Simulated assay, not measured.
Amino acid sequence: MHQVDVAVIGGGQSGLAAARELRARGVAPVILEASAQAAGSWPRYYDSLTLFSPAGHSSLPGRPFGGDPDRYPHRDEVVGYLLRYADHLDADIRTGTRVREVRAADGAFTLALHGGGRLSARAVVAASGTFGRPYRPALPGLADFTGTVLHAAEYHSPRPFAGQRVVVVGAGNSAVQIAAELARHARVTLATRRPVRFARQRALGRDLHWWLTRTGIDPLPVGRFLRTPPAQPVIDDGRYRNAVAAGSPDRRPVFAGADGPKVTWADGTTEEVDTILLATGYRPDLDYLAPLGALDASGQPRHREGLSSTHPGLAYVGLEWQRSLSSNSLRGVGRDAARVAQHLAAHLQRR
Score class of each variant (00 low, 15 high):
P219H: 02
L314N: 07
H311W: 07
L307R: 09
R304Y: 02
T215R: 07
E272I: 00
L208Y: 07
D218A: 14
Q322V: 04
R302K: 14
A245N: 11
Q322W: 00
G247Q: 04
R252D: 03
L212F: 13
R252E: 14
A297I: 02
L319K: 10
G216N: 00
D259P: 04
Q322S: 02
P230V: 08
D237Y: 03
D237L: 05
G216E: 00
S248N: 12
T280F: 01
L307Q: 10
P229F: 09
Q322C: 10
E272F: 03
A256N: 00
K262C: 13
L212N: 08
T213C: 06
I235G: 00
H209W: 15
L277E: 11
F255Q: 01
T264K: 06
P284M: 13
V273R: 03
D296Q: 11
S248E: 14
D285Y: 04
K262V: 12
R304K: 03
V234L: 01
L295P: 06
G216Q: 01
G313H: 10
S309I: 06
L289F: 02
Y288E: 05
V254F: 00
S308F: 13
V263C: 05
D267S: 12
R239C: 05
R251G: 07
V244L: 15
D285G: 10
R323I: 10
W321V: 03
S309H: 01
G238C: 07
L295T: 02
R241S: 13
N242W: 11
D237V: 03
A297V: 10
A315E: 14
P284I: 12
R251T: 15
T280N: 12
D259W: 09
S309G: 01
A297W: 03
Q322F: 00
P261F: 00
R252V: 12
T215N: 01
P219S: 00
P221E: 12
E271V: 04
L226G: 01
Q300D: 15
L307G: 08
G260Q: 09
E271L: 13
G299E: 03
G260M: 11
E305S: 15
G313Y: 08
P219D: 11
Q300F: 14
R304D: 15
V263E: 05
L286N: 08
E320I: 11
V254A: 11
L277M: 01
P249E: 08
R224M: 04
L220Q: 12
G238R: 11
P219M: 07
E271G: 07
G281A: 12
T275E: 11
L277D: 10
D250Y: 04
D285R: 02
G268I: 14
D259N: 14
S324M: 06
G318N: 02
V317R: 12
Q322N: 04
